[in-house]
Amino acid sequence: MSTKRIMKEYGECVADTPEGMKINFDENKITKWEVLLDGPDQSVYALPEVLSVSVRQGGHFKLEISFPPEYPFKPPVVSFKTKIYHPNVSNDDKGSMCLGLLRAEEWKPPNKVVAVLRLIQTLLIEPNPDDAIEPSIANDYKENYKEFEKTAKEWVKRYAK
């Protein structure tokens, strides 16, 4: 069991949490992390209007990161608990993400969760339509960006407030 490794990674994450993220960590269940993530300002996932000064601008997304028993020899599993209109997040109740580092054949054991978190942030700013899990959304993104932006923003308003 990789307790030592996960604890250490948590420590590192706390010391150096990427901006706009909050990790909820339960010591009784260290293999499931809840991550609260604000849609980055540069992305379409930021809430369009400032509600009040104290409220952060971005849409609020809840993610779950679970560590398989084989961790770190298998990559962690990321799932969006908040619906999001994004070519790389599956549009179902799983909200799964499966690209780059998160693929078993790409993942190397020394890779860290913090890199995964940064990858997610980068993807929110710049989706990767060529490696999409939702081809129709990817198509929208590539061919009809205006429409994509509209839907994505609508979803943020509807689901990610």
């Binding site: 030592k4 250490k8 054991p109």
Partner: peptide, 12 residues
């Protein structure tokens, strides 16, 4: 065996 080695995978 390398003195002061920390494994980057298991952190031992």
């Amino acid at each position: 065996r390398i003195p002061g080695f920390v494994c980057d995978i298991c952190c031992e």
